[in-house]
Design a protein around this nucleic acid. Structure first.
Lengths: 202, 202, 202, 202
DNA sequence: CATGAATGAGCTTTCATTCAT
DNA sequence: CATGAATGAAAGCTCATTCAT
């Protein structure tokens, strides 16, 4: 008979993660302190350590959840779509719909890419990161293969490579969106058209 | 009346910057300590503070110089090239020639992009970064305009936008090279062909 | 009107003390945490605080009970013995019978002597410790006096001093048993013979 | 060309060790804090960490030095003595000369034995402790062998065992000296006479 | 009585920076 | 100019104790 429900605990965890995200976004992982998170969350230091055993664990959980959330969201939407082309189209549109100068989105991008870079120094983190990336690459790769089977896409393309290219483009554009006057929408729009035109069977 | 020559000073500065780069690359800016730099450079702590007034200043100088060095290198090479297309080709080749799994290159990439992301939090850094980026975008933009004037490239393309796209691609590919098994060469090769084919006048 | 019986309470207390002893033995008083005791006992933190008001109180109770237990055990056995010499003999034999490399015994020794040393810093603890020691010294002293009255022991010996010497020997040997290869049995045996030979009337 | 001399550094180290000893003696190793040592030494926290890399290292150095100091002192004095008996006599006298209620001596005893007990939990510490003990046992053992060769001592005694007994006695007496009214002098005196009488050849 | 989540003072340790030599 | 010992404000984390449920 637990004192509090699992929902209660999950809520607390999310509250901590929310505060942590805000702090990491504002200052970066290294620079943000546990005291920052304590102050922002309004919880006590001990309480936070009851839910996470280290600052790094918070960081990891944050990223894991973000990935999962996106993945679930994508798949959920794909269920409503018939053609493969509309799925790729949808993925591009997710990023095209984003407001490149939206503060919150930008913060997320920064925290997220910093994590990527940071992890290049830690084999354990890198492993996790690669797992995550594989999930996303596979997602696109499967759409492409499906599209090739359905005759929507050129059959001779290497699906895996083409999937890699998709995320390369997305990440390149995202990264550049930290520059205030980057023509995010125009560049991404063009790259999308290029991507889809090349892929489509004539 | 300075006691030591400017050359001497410049040499010392470069020695510090070299060590600092190695340390930042290995551990990241926050995690690398002044003691690391002291140990790697073989200089004393006081000596380093004679040339740079803070760890951050070292970081900034490092990035400024890196950009300048690249810019000078590019321009130097362009002088030998006649056609605009060969210049764009050269720029792509610089990155295609890079060994994506070379440790040192990867470390540079990581330090460099970390700096980009970090700067999103500091208006002063962002300003510097944007200046730097403008130099690089202008570099490509000018090549494109030149190529349009020479009839090498399609005339109706927006040169600025197309230049932005160039760096978006490069940065996207670079960023992904932290994943050990990223097909760096294949993805970049394809993106290059796509880029040039679209640009070229028929 | 207590809700639970005293037996119930005593049982719980002993359960806590058992766990606490194990934890103190394994890590030492300072290093062992209440969480360790909670984990080992399977009880809740609140429950433990219902029976003891602090970690220190647990420690004290533990030692008090250990002494009492020994004292009672000794006296119980003495009832069966006729001569004074056999009583001293018995006391030595208790320690000779101990396995010097037995993990549990060693842990008890360590916890016990740590407590002694710790108490030298706290007048209140020291008082308690001295009371305990007096009980043990008196125990031996009384045996010696008894033996002198019965003509078993040399009459001119100062019983109190000789009793002190007994425990000095025991504690010295115990303390050295933390060194793995200490010839515990041989040293104690010799010291016992010496002790008894000197004491015995010719 | 170091900024400060080695003597300067050694002095600082000793200053830290002195303060640390006082603090450990007053509160015990676990309870004494680095802030205590900082306050007592008058040095800054950083300065202390320039000389020792952790609280534990200070503790270890303290004990190592104490042992060495004693060992050197003993040997130095032995050089002046001719007979083996006078050497054993000297060793006993060192402890007989000690004032059992001297605060400083008592504190040293407590810190020292706490270290012994603590080390029973840490294989690395235990190793160090056993090395130290071997040195001291060997010291006495060699005197006894020497005395046997010279005809001063009974030839059939096991020197090693007899040396062990010596330190058992010393440690037993020392340990009991934490009880304020322990007849330290009388007990030790008796034990010394007993020890020497038995050892001496008739 | 039992529970275990919450508290927050306090711990060891780090490190950018200063400054006497 | 060079040196590296000294500084001390934080940092991440622990844990005895409390108390609402």
């Amino acid at each position: 008979m637990p004192i509090v429900s699992d929902e209660y605990k999950e809520e607390k965890k999310e509250k901590i993660l929310d505060s942590a995200f805000t702090c990491f976004a504002k200052k970066g992982f290294e620079t943000a302190t546990m005291d920052d998170i304590v102050a922002h969350s309004g919880m006590s230091k001990g309480a936070i350590y009851n839910y996470f055993s280290s600052k790094e664990e918070i960081y990891l959980d944050l990223l894991t959840r973000a990935t999962e959330k996106n993945f679930i969201q994508y798949n959920k939407h794909f269920a409503k779509l018939r053609t493969s082309i509309s799925k790729i189209d949808y993925l591009f549109n997710v990023y095209l719909a984003a407001n490149p100068i939206d503060r919150e989105r930008l913060e997320f991008v920064v925290v997220f890419y910093e994590f990527n870079l940071q992890s290049s120094r830690d084999p354990q983190l890198l492993k996790q990161l690669k797992d995550r990336k594989k999930i996303l690459v596979d997602l696109v790769e499967n759409i492409i293969i499906e599209g090739q089977n359905r005759g929507e896409f050129k059959p001779h393309f290497q699906a895996a490579l083409y999937a890699e290219r998709f995320w390369t483009i997305i990440d390149g554009v995202n990264l550049h969106s930290v520059y205030e006057d980057f023509p995010y929408y125009d560049v991404l729009r063009e790259l999308k058209d290029l991507y889809l035109n090349e892929l489509r069977s004539e």
